[in-house]
Design a protein around this nucleic acid. Sequence first.
DNA 1: GTCGTTATTCGATATTCATCGAACTATGAG
DNA 2: CTCATAGTTCGATGAATATCGAATAACGAC
Lengths: 99, 99
Amino acid sequence: MDIEINQQNQEDQQRVAIFKALADDNRLRIIRVLYQAQREMTCGEVGAQLNISKSTVSYHFKALRLVGLTNTRREAQTKYLSLQRATFDHFLPGFLDSL
Amino acid sequence: MDIEINQQNQEDQQRVAIFKALADDNRLRIIRVLYQAQREMTCGEVGAQLNISKSTVSYHFKALRLVGLTNTRREAQTKYLSLQRATFDHFLPGFLDSL
DNA sequence: GTCGTTATTCGATATTCATCGAACTATGAG
DNA sequence: CTCATAGTTCGATGAATATCGAATAACGAC
C-alpha cells in the first residue's frame, strides 16, 4: 500500500518533470521538428530553426534529455538528436501523433 | 501557409499552457482524484486531499479551469469540479487512462 | 438584515525558469 | 601543437510560479 502510493508519487514526479519540459514553446518546436523529420538530426540543424542563441538552444536540449524525451549520439564533432519514443509512449500515448 | 503556421503556433500556445497546468504535483493529484472518482466533486472534497491552504487550492483550481482542463458548476454555496474530457482527448489522447 | 459556509482574490515572498554573451570543452584536420 | 567547428557551462538578470494568511465575495438559512 505504502509502496503503491510511493510508486505513484515517483511516477508523478516524472510526469511533472516531463510536463515541465514540454511546457515551453521552443522545446515543443524542437520535438515537432524531430518528429516530422522521422530521423535523427544534428543539434545545429535543429537549432537553426529556433531564433535564439546557441547557449539557450543547448539549455533546451539538455532539458529534454534530462527527462528522457530525447536521445543523444555523438559522432566526431557533431551530436545527433532523436526522440525517445518509449518515454512518449509510456507517459503520453498518442501525443506525438496529435502534433 | 502563414495561416497554417499561425494556426499551429496558436495550438502550441494552448499546448504550452496545458502542459504548464499539468506540470505541478498538486494539480496532477487533483486530476487523478477527479478521474478516479468518475464523478464531479465539490472543491472542498478535492481540496481535503491536498495538504495545503485553501487559497492555494483555489489557485490550482483556477489554473486548471483557465486552460480548459476542468469544468465548474455552481449549486448554492458549493461548486462542483469535473474533468473536461474533450480537452484531454484533443491534446492528450490516452493520457487520462495512463494515470 | 446577520450569520455560517464555501470559495476566490489580494499582497507579499521565496523559488524556479528562460535568456543572453562570455568562457570553456571536446573533437578532428592540417 | 594550433586552428576551426560543434556544443556545453557559467554568471547575471528579468519574468513567471507556488505559497501563505488576511480580506472579500457569493449564497442560503434564519
